[in-house]
Design a protein around this nucleic acid. Structure first.
Lengths: 236, 236
DNA sequence: CGATTGCCGACTGTCGACAGTTTTACCGCA
DNA sequence: TGCGGTAAAACTGTCGACAGTCGGCAATCG
């Protein structure tokens, strides 16, 4: 009846059930309570969460559109398993989006944006010195989300948000090593400096360097696990 | 009982109901049987289509993730209405994705890719001379999809496919004027030439020009309708 | 005559159930 | 003991129904 696993997130009592189930599933996947490739039973989930199957199904559809689950007709939902190639693709798309964003941003770099980004870097640096790896990742993502936000293209931001779910999965699941706090700080300050300079080329270089570092950390991780499963996602 | 409006699309009898309903809704939106901003009643739809509400809801969720519908809690689903800014954003993101794709593609331009793209341009040119506007649009999109496909990043392709649904909406709904057949041909041949040249800069320029032309056609259209509705999509 | 409040209808969110299909387990046979 | 076939169990896809909620309309009050 009560939830055996996840503690803080699992009220499932007060508002939109679909979103709550989606949040629960997301957390469970990120925290590897469900392993990649594992099949999720609708009835099992609905029993465990104390809800009916309808919200579970809709939440699963949502997670599918976010790339965390894969649905196979008449078979059910499976936890997305990323292989090395897909991992590279995710970071390549991230590079694509952020490059474009920073180009747009440097054209319209308002004091407000500058202030918000600098503040977020401060928060990130603070988080980097603590032990909470999850928070560090979240603050890092939030910085980049702000970058996309102030670029002024809502649709671009949405694409990034879509990607973020997979990105979070990649980073949380695979990153074993943590970047040193000062590495993180330096890397982000370089971005801010590039924006201050107003030079698109400098921004380009800075974001390439920045994401290159992050990618290296994660891809290094995947080498250890050696996940060679190659399911493929059918295009629409 | 029977369908009052849409005639040809409404078999809804043989396979995955969710996908069939999604297809039906997509077509209905594209063909403006449902107007932008209009609210869709689940019960009405399920009655009209002769299915229960569950598949309708799941299909609507799918369309929501594709940006064709917007869900407001306790209010239902509404047909997405794009204003001028959002239209610009869509084309800006398209530019972002295709620029990146063509850069990747020029690095790995295989004979197979070359052949497939050239063949698709032929098909497109043929379609451009006919009267079927829908087919012309589809063949055009298919060309660009191939471009993304041969770029070799599945995730990038998925992002493009996601965007395609909105793109199709923009183009079909708003474009009143049709590009001349030879304009289309020239525009696409320039892309192929740039790829042949192997120069990233040439590709960059070609894709910018190409998408710029398409954008101009569509944005010109939105000026006439003057849709200034500004609903905003909440980020996740 | 305008604003507020209560009521009514419609609709969404959620649920339990049934049918068809897939997977699994068991049993007989070689 | 290994293998194939059959039957049962479990699960997904779909359905109809109920309850809570929201919007609109009308009646009432200032």
């Amino acid at each position: 009846m009560a939830l055996p696993t996840a503690a803080p997130r699992a009220f499932i009592q007060q508002q939109n059930l679909v979103e709550q189930v989606a949040d629960y599933l997301t957390q469970a996947i990120i925290q590897q309570h469900f392993l990649p490739g594992e099949r999720l039973s609708e009835v099992q989930l609905s029993r465990d969460l104390g809800v009916s199957r309808a919200p579970v199904r809709e939440a699963a559809r949502l997670l599918e559109s976010r790339g965390l689950l894969i649905s196979k007709p008449r078979r059910g939902f499976f936890v997305r398993a990323l292989n090395a190639v897909e991992l590279e693709d995710v970071f390549d798309l991230r590079l694509c989006l952020e490059r474009h964003a920073i180009h747009r941003l440097v054209e319209r770099y308002t004091p407000e944006a500058k202030r918000a980004l600098e503040q977020q870097v401060d928060v990130l640096c603070e988080a980097a010195e603590g032990n909470d790896g999850t928070r560090r990742i979240e603050e890092d993502l939030q910085f980049h989300r702000l970058l996309l936000h102030y670029a002024g293209n809502e649709r671009l931001l949405r694409a990034f948000d879509d990607l973020t779910h997979e990105l979070r999965l990649c980073i949380t699941l695979i990153t074993k090593t943590h970047e040193a706090p000062d590495t993180i700080a330096t890397s982000h300050f370089k971005l801010l400096d590039a924006l201050d300079s107003g030079s698109p080329d400098a921004c380009h270089e800075a974001i390439d360097y920045h994401i290159g570092v992050a990618r290296k950390f994660v891809v290094k991780g995947v080498g250890e696990t050696g996940d060679h499963s190659d399911e493929d996602i059918l295009p629409s």
